[in-house]
Nucleic acid binder design. Sequence first.
DNA 1: CTTACGATGTCCT
DNA 2: GGACATCGTAAGG
Length: 196
Amino acid sequence: MEPRHRPLSPEFFHQPTLELAKALLGCLLVKETKDGPASGFIVETEAYMGAGDRAAHSYRNRRTKRTEVMFAEPGRVYTYVMHTHTLINVVSGDRDVPEAILIRALEPYEGLDLMSVRRAGRKRKEWTNGPGKLTQALGITREDYGRRFTEWPLYLSSGFVPEQISSGPRIGIENTGKARFYPWRFWVSDNLYVSK
DNA sequence: CTTACGATGTCCT
DNA sequence: GGACATCGTAAGG
């Protein structure tokens, strides 16, 4: 199958994780299923800095079936299940440097009819303003684990350049000591779809 | 096999 | 601001 948009090149992912977390803001995240394409612009990300980051699944280089893909080359898809929701990350860092970037919020772009069905009963603003919500809206599942963000059916494409970027502490990692205070969450300033 | 728990969302007060 | 549903993953017996 041919992607509907031109995917980013593999080289894009070869940059320091905190830089990549900011560079992802404004990019278009696309998932194509048999029901059609659905996509949105990334407006919020969080960086997880690998072995030295107590909040990361790969803290102390913990290597399990779940975290295995974090040790692969950058640009891979890391999905995992949190309670009843699937969350999606962009694998970052060179091979054997297990860093990743959580995609926390999108601004809906294509497949709005599809999203309204998948997020039935919610207002448009609630379709993609959270990491578990956006995967539901786009039809992203744990089956997407290990894919490349440069290939159909789940890929990234260029979008807009944010006017301004804000940063602050990450969310939902209360029990991680000092790591909870690191300003590794980034978002498009004043965007309506940022979570929280 | 058993247990504990979490990078959440939703509903309730 | 708090309770809790709900289930895959990880770790321990």
